[in-house]
Amino acid sequence: MSATLLLEQCLNGMQLGIMLFLMSAGLTLVFGIMNLVNLAHGSFYMAGAYLGAFVYASSQSFLLGVVAGLGGALLIGLIAEFLIFRRIYKGDHLDHVLVTFGLTLIFNDLARLIWGPAALFARVPPFLSGQVNIFGLISYPAYRLAIIVVGLAVAALLYVLLRHTRLGMLIRASASNRTMASALGVNVVVLYALVFALGAGLAGLAGLMAGPIFTVIPGMGDNVLILAFVVIVVGGLGSVEGAFCAALVIGLIDTLGRSFMKPLFGLFLERAAADNSAPAIASMLIYILMAIILFFRPQGLFPPKSR
């Protein structure tokens, strides 16, 4: 195993982690502030991917595709919040699961109705389709590097927004104590709508960037949603910082497990046995990690300070 390979696999792991972070940031915010379990979050991811791929393919403009994917997911989030979600905040988690699972089915079938059952294959824009040389050590696909850069920038923006702006302060205040915040005159209704749309937009961004790597098909958000839930449970429900750290840890563990499990097993197992068992164990690694963390820290790695 060479150092350059390790570096490259770490970048791969970061790229996966960043995507998971964008997906789970909205999920954890919505849970932390509105106490809402949103199984339909994957639908915003799917909306971002479909709108981005479709508009890019039909207009030939990457920028328009980005605007459509990001803006479309945000707008759909805003509309869904206004029509449906704000009515169920007060319900218990079982109501949330029922309503949002139903919404997922509706969104998946809508996508099938509009774009057909066959997969849409999103393209990487030409200026990102090559490789970039990093420190003269490795050449890395430009598109994947772009995902890392965009994701880190969004994470930084989110940090500034939550920690150093008035809006962020209000969001944090509502997260720690909703009743007190609204008693002090915070317009909770508008705040909730904003937070919800922000989460949907982030999921849309993740979907938009995932389009060219994963295939754009109805129901594509469902698989990612499971991973996103693992991330927010490990990171601590409601904590954006926790989601960031957990997403990176899970991305790295999954990627490094997939690549180095086999040579590792090969040290003490027969080649055939290692060939068979390593991929199976590698795909279980993140769930094993979740089980271990929940056993020792049921509240997750970085739970929000007060609730």
Binding site: L5, L16, F214, D275, P279
Partner: peptide, 21 residues
């Protein structure tokens, strides 16, 4: 090398890096 990936896996970044090295 003989590598098998899960049937549902669509992102091959880790495997492609292995091939490269």
């Amino acid at each position: 090398a003989e590598v098998y990936t899960p049937l549902t896996q669509l992102d091959f970044s880790a495997e492609l890096s292995q091939i490269k090295s």
